[in-house]
């Protein structure tokens, strides 16, 4: 079996769902963050692709498009030593407690 991102000619008769969802603010922000890091030379399109393609099959297929971009963003900033997973966990917890 090819890796899950390598979609060409996967056997499927699933009709193409042509509904388009309006983009949420966070989705656009993730897109923008990738672009900003790209302009600073901190991320290339090929790296985004490679990070997305490194997701395991279940994760890849269960995540939405910008969820994959978020997972890839984390992989890249951690890999480059810009942020650590622990810092991100902590920040998430902090933001959640502020929101309560």
């Amino acid at each position: 079996m090819p890796k899950p991102h390598d979609r060409g000619s996967w056997p499927t008769d699933e009709p193409i769902d042509r509904d388009e969802h309006p983009h949420a603010d966070w989705e656009l922000r993730v897109h923008a963050l990738h672009q900003v890091l790209g302009r600073k030379g901190l991320r290339r399109t090929d790296e985004l692709r490679r990070a997305i393609e490194s997701l395991d099959s279940d994760t890849y297929q269960s995540l939405s498009y910008y969820e994959r971009w978020t997972a890839a963003l984390e992989i890249l900033v951690v890999e480059k030593g810009i942020l650590s997973t622990e810092e991100i966990d902590q920040k998430m917890a902090d933001l959640a407690s502020v929101g309560r």
């Binding site: 966070w26 939405s64 969820e67 978020t70 900033v77 991100i88 920040k91 998430m92 933001l95």
Partner: peptide, 17 residues
């Protein structure tokens, strides 16, 4: 993931990236 992205952005801004 929306909250994860928000945390990553907040940290990148806080670190001056």
């Amino acid at each position: 993931y929306a909250r994860r992205a928000q945390a990553i952005e907040a940290l990148l801004v806080a670190k001056g990236i």
